Simulated assay, not measured.
Amino acid sequence: MSISKLSIVVPCFNEESNIQELFKELKEVVTTFSFSYEVIFVDDGSKDHTYLEIEKIANTYDYVSGISLSRNFGHQIALLAGLERSTGDVVITMDGDLQHPPHVIPDLISKYEEGYDIVNTRRIDDESTSFFKKKTSSLFYAIINKLSDTKVEPFGADFRLMSRETVDAFLSIKEHDRFTRGLVSWIGFHQGTVAYKANPRFSGKSSYTLKKMIKLAVNGITSMSSRPLRISLYLGLIFFVTGIVYAIFILYNYFIGLNVAGWTSILITILILGGIQLLIMSIIGEYVSRIFNETKSRPLYLVKKKTNDIS
């Protein structure tokens, strides 16, 4: 499949020290292409001078543009904002910290030319990735693929190529709490995968704290599956039946005259039942919160600034 124009979308948050180096590497790649191209930077409410660095590049190169969101709306929303402004018949999304190496872009395009509508990537971690991050990432994908009917590429990333047809299909989904990797899998089409070795960050610290990773994991699971609600039902039934059996056991001992010293067992039972109830209420609360967010009908993001060449 031929390409007329390529769009590259880069969400950024506090990447002031990375933008210039990233663009340098991107420029070395895109200037070798025979088709036209554009690079769209999305500043997701950075606290540093990320947007100023974007403006410097956009003022020098006419194929570069950028927008600054009014606050930090999150990586998934920044990604969406960039996709909505892309005009290419093929779009590549990647992070702004150089962990997604630009030299892999020709590999994505080659895979697309083989006939794939979406080309996902599979991350191969470098030696600097912690044991904890590797294991938690593996556990997350195992859980979400077990619970969801839609399979998500293990060790995937938001570094992918999408045809215009699949971008339009993706943009037609109007969910507020978005899990991009799951939604891309859900829309279907012919999807392939390219493996790449993740680079360490060029500079700075990752903004993806443990808290944000947990939030993404919860959002991913609740976005792609309702099975946790069914699990809550099964847990409730199991403990209800257990409670009935235990009550019969206590009554039986009472009527045959046995003294049951059950303070310890009662306390343990109360703690277990209380914990299960709180867990079930928390799971239900997550789904209610998603319903609440969807009914508010607020815009997914607001734009504060944009470079002159963005409409």
Score class of each variant (00 low, 15 high):
150 T>M: 07
269 T>G: 08
85 R>S: 01
274 G>T: 02
242 T>Q: 08
7 S>I: 06
299 P>H: 10
259 N>D: 11
120 N>E: 08
265 S>I: 11
255 F>H: 15
105 I>M: 00
248 I>N: 07
59 N>F: 02
291 I>F: 13
12 C>G: 11
189 F>V: 07
266 I>A: 09
181 R>E: 13
219 N>E: 03
152 V>D: 02
116 Y>M: 10
168 D>R: 15
37 Y>S: 10
239 F>G: 01
70 S>R: 12
15 E>P: 04
207 S>G: 01
276 I>S: 07
3 I>D: 00
183 L>M: 15
81 A>C: 05
225 S>D: 02
164 R>Y: 12
30 V>R: 00
122 R>T: 05
136 T>I: 09
294 E>F: 08
107 D>F: 05
91 V>H: 03
220 G>V: 01
239 F>D: 06
129 T>E: 09
160 R>L: 14
234 Y>N: 08
230 R>S: 12
307 T>V: 09
141 Y>D: 10
124 I>A: 05
163 S>D: 05
228 P>W: 00
195 A>S: 14
252 Y>M: 13
19 I>K: 06
190 H>S: 14
99 Q>H: 04
108 L>N: 00
129 T>H: 08
162 M>P: 00
98 L>G: 05
166 T>I: 14
131 F>H: 09
56 K>C: 09
31 T>V: 09
33 F>Q: 02
80 L>E: 09
12 C>P: 00
165 E>Y: 13
85 R>N: 13
5 K>Y: 07
175 E>Q: 11
120 N>R: 13
192 G>T: 08
261 A>H: 11
70 S>M: 07
17 S>Q: 08
50 T>N: 08
262 G>C: 04
120 N>D: 05
264 T>G: 12
18 N>H: 03
9 V>W: 00
65 S>N: 00
155 F>I: 07
22 L>T: 00
56 K>G: 06
26 L>C: 02
30 V>C: 01
153 E>S: 06
220 G>D: 01
3 I>Q: 03
10 V>H: 11
141 Y>F: 15
218 V>C: 04
156 G>K: 04
261 A>P: 09
135 K>M: 14
221 I>R: 02
12 C>N: 09
285 G>Y: 05
187 I>A: 06
3 I>P: 10
224 M>N: 08
42 V>Y: 01
225 S>Y: 05
121 T>V: 13
67 I>F: 05
4 S>H: 15
303 V>K: 13
185 S>G: 15
